Amino acid sequence: MLTGKQKRFLRAEAHHLDPIFQVGKGGVNDAMIAQLRDVLEARELIKVRILDNCEEDKNVVAEELAAGTRAELVQLIGLTVVLYKESRNNKKIVLPKVATK
């Protein structure tokens, strides 16, 4: 689970990224989830665009993407979803530390 500080950091990192996947009329499917898992392993942080012709609600699509890829939903702004999943082999992003009391 990401803290607010970590989510802010990831939103700032994702600001300059372009969406690399699109969810269209067909919605979320298994092939898309498999591809997203591979891309998340390589990049850790990605944007996915939900097209206007997508029949499902954008919140449902965002949750399906996060659950299917086992990634953290960083942000859903407009029709753009930002996902983060820590890579096992290609760790590039260092998250801010969680303050302990």
Results as ranks from 00 to 15, higher is better:
28 V>Y: 08
64 E>N: 02
62 A>F: 10
78 G>H: 14
62 A>I: 15
93 I>K: 04
89 N>E: 15
75 Q>G: 08
9 F>Q: 02
19 P>N: 08
48 V>A: 05
84 Y>N: 00
40 L>A: 07
35 Q>K: 13
77 I>H: 04
50 I>W: 02
15 H>D: 14
91 K>E: 12
86 E>P: 09
71 A>M: 04
18 D>M: 13
66 A>P: 03
88 R>C: 03
94 V>I: 14
37 R>L: 02
22 Q>F: 12
22 Q>Y: 06
58 K>H: 06
89 N>I: 10
91 K>W: 05
69 T>R: 01
33 I>M: 13
90 N>R: 15
92 K>R: 13
35 Q>I: 00
19 P>Q: 09
70 R>C: 13
87 S>L: 14
57 D>W: 06
18 D>F: 11
48 V>N: 03
61 V>W: 09
38 D>M: 05
32 M>Q: 14
94 V>K: 11
84 Y>P: 02
17 L>I: 00
37 R>H: 06
90 N>A: 13
60 V>K: 15
53 N>A: 11
40 L>Q: 00
70 R>L: 09
93 I>F: 03
21 F>D: 01
81 V>A: 04
33 I>C: 14
55 E>P: 07
58 K>I: 03
80 T>V: 15
32 M>K: 08
15 H>C: 09
11 R>H: 02
18 D>G: 04
10 L>T: 08
28 V>H: 09
67 A>E: 14
54 C>E: 13
13 E>N: 04
11 R>L: 14
29 N>S: 02
71 A>G: 05
50 I>E: 04
94 V>N: 11
72 E>H: 12
45 L>Y: 10
91 K>D: 05
55 E>M: 12
21 F>S: 05
52 D>K: 04
91 K>F: 02
94 V>Y: 10
25 K>R: 10
14 A>T: 09
40 L>P: 00
85 K>A: 07
41 E>K: 11
30 D>K: 05
47 K>P: 01
38 D>P: 00
89 N>C: 09
78 G>L: 07
53 N>P: 06
39 V>A: 11
92 K>W: 03
74 V>Y: 03
